[in-house]
């Protein structure tokens, strides 16, 4: 008993060191010792149970075995190499792995844009019922002024911060609510499409199409794509729950969760780029023609990045 107690105490000591997380200081010898002591504690627990040694010993051993068990963990800590490979390989691959969801999400986003835009062009008053009239007027006035003068740098930084806070939040929400069998993501995609279509068309009808479109096109390449990607991932999450195939729902989710998280993280990164563009480039004083060209190039880059990056060595 004394020997065992000493062993358990030693295990507790090693555990405390492991738990405080400074694992850098723990050498191989100590790790081996931990594994050994942990195994012994496991067998002691089994004995304590079968020979009915009492709740005290049993719950004590139960607790240290539980603590020891938690120390075993998959080695997956992103390091610098992971960070680089994430963008050159993992993210675009994860997007392609769910391309049908991306297509569906694109439709769920674009079709409402087209329909509401068409409706607003025919009858601008419709925009008032879809969006707050005061806000519409404010936006219209803003685009009426145009961006010839550019903005102060301070204002640019402020807006960038706002876009990060707001848009990445929207994207995460768009993904997360997919857990309600995809309905939340579909709702947010359609809602954003309807609002965007109505506001955009209203501003264009008011005669400021150049100012508006040249503003939107640049960061839109990143922002709109990212919203669609997170919506697509949310729908995928929901569909896995609806139809997990040959697996249990939990297992089906486990299989796909890394892919899904990769897409959501990638979308978040794209939204950071979008926020910088929307804060500093889109409202700049550059000529609309230049903004259209740059914007077009960005769209081509983003789409070909998602379609082509990391193709080498990709399993089908």
């Amino acid at each position: 008993m004394e020997q065992r107690r000493a062993r358990w105490e030693r295990l507790e000591h090693v555990l405390r060191r492991l738990e405080t997380g400074r694992s850098g200081k723990i050498d191989q010898h100590e790790l081996d010792e931990f594994v050994h002591l942990y195994r012994m504690a496991c067998s002691d627990l089994a004995r304590a149970r079968s020979q009915d040694l009492g709740d005290d010993v049993e719950s004590y051993l139960n607790a240290i075995v539980a603590r020891g068990h938690k120390q075993f963990r998959p080695r997956t800590s992103p390091d610098r190499r992971h960070f680089f490979e994430f963008f050159t390989r993992d993210f675009p691959r994860a997007v392609r792995a769910q391309k049908w969801y991306v297509l569906a999400a694109t439709l769920l986003f674009v079709v409402p844009i087209v329909i509401t835009a068409w409706a607003v062009v025919n009858d601008p008053d419709i925009a008032y019922s879809l969006s707050d009239p005061a806000q519409l007027e404010m936006l219209t006035d803003a685009y009426a002024e145009g961006h010839q003068g550019g903005r102060s740098e301070g204002e640019d930084s402020l807006m960038t911060g706002f876009y990060v806070h707001n848009n990445v939040g929207i994207a995460f929400r768009c993904f997360a609510t997919g857990v309600f069998f995809g309905l939340g993501s579909i709702f947010f995609l359609v809602l954003n499409g309807v609002m965007g279509g109505a506001v955009g068309a209203y501003i264009c009808v008011a005669g400021y199409s150049e100012s508006f479109l040249s503003f939107v096109i640049g960061h839109g390449a990143f922002e709109l794509t990212a919203i669609v990607l997170s919506g697509a991932t949310g729908i995928k999450l929901g569909m896995i729950l609806v139809n997990p195939g040959p697996y249990s729902r939990i297992d089906a989710l486990k299989l796909k969760s890394r892919q899904m998280i990769n897409v959501v993280l990638g979308a978040a990164a794209m939204l950071l780029v979008a926020a910088l563009l929307e804060g500093f480039w889109s409202p700049s004083g550059a000529a609309p023609m230049i903004k259209f060209i740059v914007g077009g190039v960005l769209w081509v880059l983003v789409i070909s990045y998602l379609m082509l990056a990391g193709r080498v060595g990709e399993s089908r």
Partner: peptide, 11 residues
């Protein structure tokens, strides 16, 4: 600029 600080705070 005050805008810069506000933007950083939002981030």
């Amino acid at each position: 600029s005050e805008g810069l600080s506000a933007g950083l705070v939002l981030i």
